[in-house]
Simulated scan of single mutants.
Amino acid sequence: MHHNFRIAITALLAVFLLSSCADRPSRVVLKGGTMGTTWSVIYSEPEQDGPGVSAEELQTLIETELLAINQTLSTYIPESEISLLNSSPDESSVLLSSRFSTVLDAALSVGGLTDGAYDVTVRPLVELWGFGARTREPVPPTEAQIQAAMVFVGAHRLSWNAEASTLSRPAGVEVDLSSIAKGYAVDQLSDMLAARGVVDSLVEIGGELRARGQRPEGGLWRLAVESPDPSQSRFIEALAVSDAAVATSGDYRNYFEYEGRRYSHLVDPRSGYPVAHELVSVTVVHRECMTADALATALLVLGLDAALQLAKSQGIAAHFVARGEEALEVHYTPAFEAYRQNTQAGESP
């Protein structure tokens, strides 16, 4: 029996876990819901020589941690730290928690790396195009509406003091960390398990994963990237990882069509328009899921040529799926090669 934890939300390409056919007693699986999706944790039960920690205790610890993260980063919770920041008086200097500061600093770093292709202030454009919290008719906004929203977009409008952990922003400029929050939460859960003696684990939230150690059955954790075109094959790439995180971003699930044109949910903060290029999905392997999560989104916005160039120059392990003239094309950086499985990607490893 295969244990496929497949979570498809808001067009993020889910990554599949392919486990061994034989479940052994040492394998423990925990599950739950968070951030509008689901989470799962698979781990090897620690040796019982020490005090140990029960599955029930871990389940409670995980749920408590996820609640705390949401209370910091969720724009859907009116009293969350990020919601209070976005409603704070204009230009006021707000002291951020260490949790918030860590995530914001990482997001701004990725934004700088990509010259603004990734931007934590893009929310007004996402809402304008109908892909945010508010529902609206799938009709493209006017150029005037786009330009009006662009006034409030751009991380350069934020005044961030990393040393003091203080942030101020002009009126109308909001921070949204939803494109990095799941990756951060994966890291936090993985670290928490390791701190409690769980050395072999796979943590997953909404398709973003982080592996530590090895599978309960032994050997590297085996993962597969779902194909954007299921009619061709179920999976498009098989991976084997240990002590690494994997995040995938895709634009092929969440979109609308208007007068024969397809509009992706992924809005380029530099232009104000949804991305319209051949790149379909990006998978990034990195030591941190938080960074992998943000980079996958950033590289997808950049488009194939610019993304490949940046990923190669920065030594990023990245895998790209693009629309070719007749079929999907796969590209990847040299750093990604180490994780590729020598198996038929269309089948289970």
Score class of each variant (00 low, 15 high):
199 V>P: 05
199 V>K: 15
199 V>Y: 04
199 V>C: 00
200 D>V: 03
200 D>W: 05
201 S>Y: 11
201 S>F: 06
201 S>D: 03
202 L>R: 03
202 L>S: 13
204 E>S: 15
206 G>E: 06
206 G>V: 06
207 G>I: 02
208 E>W: 03
209 L>Y: 10
210 R>M: 14
210 R>V: 07
210 R>T: 04
210 R>W: 05
212 R>T: 12
213 G>H: 01
214 Q>L: 08
214 Q>E: 12
215 R>C: 12
215 R>Q: 15
215 R>A: 15
216 P>H: 12
216 P>R: 07
216 P>A: 12
216 P>W: 05
217 E>W: 03
218 G>Y: 13
218 G>Q: 10
219 G>T: 12
219 G>M: 15
220 L>E: 15
220 L>P: 07
220 L>K: 12
221 W>D: 07
221 W>G: 10
221 W>K: 05
222 R>V: 12
223 L>T: 08
224 A>L: 02
224 A>G: 15
224 A>S: 14
224 A>K: 14
224 A>N: 00
226 E>T: 14
227 S>R: 06
228 P>Q: 07
228 P>N: 06
228 P>V: 08
228 P>E: 11
229 D>N: 12
229 D>F: 02
229 D>Q: 12
230 P>A: 13
230 P>K: 15
231 S>C: 02
231 S>K: 13
232 Q>P: 00
233 S>I: 02
233 S>D: 06
234 R>T: 14
234 R>A: 04
234 R>K: 13
234 R>W: 07
234 R>Y: 01
234 R>I: 01
235 F>C: 08
235 F>S: 03
236 I>L: 14
236 I>P: 00
237 E>D: 01
